[in-house]
Design a protein around this nucleic acid. Structure first.
Lengths: 108, 108
DNA sequence: TACATTTGCAACCATCGAGTTGCATATTAA
DNA sequence: TTAATATGCAACTCGATGGTTGCAAATGTA
């Protein structure tokens, strides 16, 4: 089944995994060493992250290096963007922000 | 129990609720009209959002207007920020981004 | 070839999460 | 006062989720 990216980052272990992989591509075994859980539990998290394309595998012999796919994070950033304007420059731009939000909504 | 903000925005209905309330403070009944679910289901979502302070209530007679608290979204934005640099200006700044991520991690 | 390593998958289990219905409480209106 | 409205809370159901253990397949090594 297709996974939602917001659900993927809802789990703290998965967020930590993304932090790790963003620094350097890593094998499941290497990842598991950073957590108290079993390797299989980490493997299941990897599956979720891969399903929504937040990471991608690179086979190398019997090892698999998982790489971070930053592009997919845009979806979260895009959702966050209109809200972000509500706490930045709030006094000068609040009105236009609300107008933009309404416009976006009315597009249907 | 204390709710995690990432878990709060994991649910699509709650994300839609935040979009609504960001435009205008609203009562639970008014929110429920925008969805197919029952009023009580919406009420439970409100509870979750309120627990992590993404919204705050304002009593007015027997009605309760819920207001959006944009400040709390910073937590998501802050988590996203270092990754964001991985897809923006990637060729010019990739190295420094990785260094920053490593520094942040080593702070412990 | 025989054995160890790396990984994924399946089965099972306990808990969580989102939905429902029913009910109690508080406020407004008739 | 009586009735209607707005809201929250409790109990229940059911599917999703995160963890475990066990096993099979593929690759590398002795």
């Amino acid at each position: 089944m297709k996974k939602d990216i917001f659900q993927a980052i809802a789990d703290p272990t998965r967020r930590a995994l993304l932090g790790l992989i963003a620094l350097q591509a890593m094998t499941p075994n290497a990842m598991a060493e950073h957590f108290d859980t079993s390797r299989q539990a980490v493997s299941k998290h990897i599956r979720v992250l891969q399903e929504c394309e937040l990471i991608r595998p690179e086979q190398s012999g019997r090892e698999i290096y998982y790489h971070f796919n930053a592009e997919r994070m845009k979806e979260v950033a895009d959702w966050l963007a209109p809200f972000q304007q509500l706490w930045e420059d709030r006094f000068s731009r609040l009105d236009t922000v609300l107008i933009n939000l309404k416009k976006k909504k009315n597009v249907k």
